[in-house]
Design a protein around this nucleic acid. Structure first.
Length: 574
DNA sequence: GCCGTTTTCGGCCCGACTGTTTTCAGTCG
């Protein structure tokens, strides 16, 4: 029973309660608790052992007791009884667009439908239109939604895939007639690691003209809906795009609204009510009916007596309270990164020479680059033997000579933490390296105790400076390794080693919630691209965004320090 | 079911879009 399993139980409870017709606020309470468990950043079990369940936002007595039962017994009686009452498979029916709790309940009670397959068959057979309030159109929409659901398997796509597509749409939108502004919104703008659809927002005086222009975009496969301010369509690859068009003088409230998250918006709107204002995407409304418009998003926050809150923080995880108390963190930025600590060359599995990588880093504005190819035991990626590593040092020196002092090259390695817990190079070699990054690539399926022990021995090794992609997780794929992250973070704080936030959009490891926990614990971090080509250096914004989502300030990030400070830090380490 | 520098009980955001029910319910974000 890990955090994800526990969260899933509460999401399911929420779905089933909703179908059952339970009070919506009770349903939302379960969802909120599930959300909090997912963004906890540490093992739920640890919080439980400390007796701190009710410190989790959205967890009170009732849900706290349920978590306790779940962790103690691995089961939850309340959930079991609920499943006996409402078929659990109805949750998959809820995933279908245009099907919410009310319709799901009617399909089940009036037609005996409990699974997606049954719903599809009923729609094809024309049995849905027999229900009151449902006609042929509804039936067709549901069929289309089922198809769409089946096409996009997981439902969410990685941010690294989504953003370039959105950028390309935005570029053309900005050239459309009458468009004053066009921006990303939704989870795209909040830089969540995956997004469900592309939310875009446009400031323009003539919505029709904008929507007409979008209809002509070649990647639009079909229009799903269009109103006065809202347009939604499906792209050829099944991805959904949602576009809002609002007048430029209302762009601020509109952008704020469309960026979300929904929970963050609710928090702001409650705050507005406290101030005697009603907030919507169109603007503020005073009790006398007068409107207050915001062209800029910052004005929305200002009106609420808050500093502007960066989109990466808008998850209702304490950011509104922090903003209100003047305690928002000064988040790290891309510009703050002076160098790259993790890069590969054609000496191992990179695509380019040392010099090409160096020139790439230089044009990215970096003042130093650590060459950190794989170590010997990783044969599949042509890991360097000690002998080849020494040869590489000469090559680095030669490249440095040719480059002059335009960029500083440092000798590094991504050293494998082997299955037996030993590092992949002898101590005298590690000592001769400027930067040692220790990573695990293999045997992640060992027992929790063994993986933790391997990590701890690497963290405590005086030669190690950075732990690379510490949990081994893959976005939308592999879960974080079973390890005692709390223990690793505590040891990292002790030894002063930095934990990597790997910027590759497939990794983003540490993830946002873990980064936040690391900072809470007082750990140092490093934001690295793990570049295998100069182009990969362009992926650093994903790492920066992940750090920002984890409330990480520049002070915690070693490669955001001035170069001299970084070099001094490295010098005093083993 | 949670939560409180206006509350330990009574609140808990606000609007767009769609289909079909001629006045609104359901869904979504």
């Amino acid at each position: 029973m890990n955090n994800r399993d526990a969260a899933q139980v509460f999401y399911n409870i929420a779905d089933l309660l909703e179908i059952k017709g339970e009070q919506i606020y009770k349903v939302l309470a379960y969802r909120r608790a599930a959300e909090s468990i997912l963004s906890l950043g540490r093992d739920l079990r640890g919080v439980w052992k400390e007796g701190g369940l009710e410190t989790i936002p959205g967890v009170g007595k009732a849900i706290g007791a349920k978590i306790d039962e779940l962790l103690r017994t691995g089961k939850l009686e309340f959930y079991e009884e609920l499943k006996a009452e409402v078929p659990a498979t109805l949750a998959e029916v809820l995933r279908v667009g245009d099907v919410g709790p009310k319709k799901a309940a009617r399909f089940w009670k009036e037609l005996g439908i409990t699974t997606l397959d049954q719903l599809e068959r009923a729609a094809r057979d024309g049995r849905l239109r027999g229900l009151s309030g449902m006609g042929e159109k509804s039936e067709a929409r549901i069929l289309a939604s089922i198809e769409a659901l089946r096409r996009r398997q997981s439902g969410r796509i990685p941010i690294g895939t989504a953003r370039p597509i959105a950028e390309s749409l935005l570029q053309r939108l900005r050239q459309a007639p009458d468009v004053a502004k066009a921006e990303m919104a939704g989870s795209l703008r909040r830089w969540r690691e995956t997004v469900g659809d592309l939310d875009l927002i446009v400031g323009a005086t003539d919505p029709d003209a904008v929507m007409q222009a979008v209809r002509q975009f070649p990647e639009i496969a079909r229009i799903k809906g269009q109103g006065e301010t809202k347009f939604s369509a499906e792209l050829v690859d099944g991805l959904r795009v949602q576009l809002w068009v609002h007048p430029p003088e209302r762009f601020g409230t509109a952008l704020q609204y469309a960026t979300g998250s929904q929970a963050h918006n609710v928090r702001l709107r409650e705050r507005a009510l406290d101030l005697g204002l009603s907030l919507s995407e169109h603007g503020f409304k005073r009790s006398d009916g007068k409107e207050i418009l915001c062209a800029e998003e910052a004005e929305v926050y200002q009106r609420l007596g808050l500093p502007w809150i960066p989109p990466e923080l808008r998850e209702d995880q304490g950011e509104v309270q922090a903003a209100s108390a003047g305690r928002l963190p000064e988040l790290v930025t891309l510009e703050a990164l002076h160098g790259e600590l993790h890069s590969h060359t054609d000496w191992s599995d990179g695509q380019n020479t040392i010099e090409e990588m160096a020139r790439g880093a230089r044009s990215a504005g970096l003042s130093y680059l650590v060459i950190s190819d794989h170590s010997q035991s990783l044969g599949v990626v042509n890991g360097l033997t000690v002998e080849r590593l020494r040869m590489q040092w000469e090559a680095i020196a030669e490249a440095q000579h040719r480059l002059g002092d335009s960029i500083l090259l440092l000798r590094g390695a991504e050293v494998e933490i082997r299955a037996d817990g030993e590092l992949d190079y002898p101590d005298e070699i590690l000592a001769a390296l400027d930067v040692v990054t220790a990573s695990v690539h293999t045997s992640l399926r060992q027992s929790r105790e063994r993986v933790t022990a391997r990590m701890l021995s690497a963290v405590r090794n005086p030669h190690v400076d950075v732990i690379g992609h510490p949990t081994g997780r893959m976005v939308g794929g592999r879960d974080p390794a079973e390890l005692d992250l709390e223990a690793v973070l505590a040891a990292a704080r002790e030894s002063g080693v930095a934990l990597e936030i790997n910027a590759h959009p497939a990794r983003l490891d540490l993830k946002d919630a873990h980064a936040r926990r690391a900072v809470e614990m007082g750990c140092r971090l490093a934001i690295n691209s793990d570049a295998h080509s100069p182009a990969d250096l362009e992926l650093r914004p994903y790492g920066v965004a992940t750090a920002r989502r984890g409330w990480v300030g520049a002070e915690s990030v070693v490669n955001a320090w001035p170069r001299e400070r970084l070099l001094a830090w490295l010098g005093q380490r083993g």
